[in-house]
């Protein structure tokens, strides 16, 4: 188990407001791969990163919900983020990971192809998302970061699960 960090939601909230005011700020991002694309999440949202485990299917759940797992005595849902983004399916490999994130005090696991690294970047280099990214609703994207020759898509994880047709978490988003 590669525990990255116990996330603290209050901090996360405070951080967000800081983002808006001071542009020259170092942000820490967890980057992961889905196919050829590189995505990133704010590290404060990430609770831990686990290897893949047995997933129990939930009948009649939305199709992007892969099932539920036992996370040290808690039962949490697992989402295949590829399905959510309508990307092509990929088989589970040795690199496949579950990123456990905290959203509005609820815990959800995301299946990703692989986790790359923790990046410290200047928030200044994150630019607003282009209006349309193929297959991806740009509402779910916070911004795009350019780093040398890499292009990293920063996801708005809160919005992914609290808005849209298949909300996994009931709640309002500011």
């Amino acid at each position: 188990m590669e525990v990255v960090k116990e996330a603290n939601n209050e901090n996360a909230g405070a951080d967000k407001t800081k983002d808006d005011t001071t542009l020259e700020e170092i942000v820490q991002l967890v980057t992961f791969r889905l196919g050829n694309e590189e995505f990133a999440l704010d590290i404060l949202k990430v609770q831990e990163i686990n290897r893949i485990v047995d997933i129990t299917r939930v009948p009649k759940a939305p199709d992007f919900v892969e099932g539920v797992i036992n996370l040290r005595g808690r039962v949490i849902p697992i989402v295949d983020i590829r399905k959510k983004f309508h990307l092509k399916m990929k088989e589970i490999t040795k690199e496949t990971r579950i990123i456990v994130v905290n959203i509005m005090n609820k815990t959800i696991g995301l299946i990703v192809d692989s986790v790359s690294e923790v990046l410290r970047i200047d928030s200044g280099i994150i630019q607003p998302p282009p209006p349309l990214i193929a297959g991806l609703d740009s509402d779910y994207i916070k911004g795009v970061g350019k780093l040398d020759d890499r292009l990293i898509i920063l996801l708005d994880i809160d919005k992914i699960f609290t808005t849209g047709d298949h909300r996994l978490i009931e709640g309002m988003i500011k």
Partner: peptide, 10 residues
């Protein structure tokens, strides 16, 4: 263990 926190839709 409740699954009530999540809207699993079923």
């Amino acid at each position: 263990k409740s699954l009530g926190d999540y809207q699993l839709g079923y």
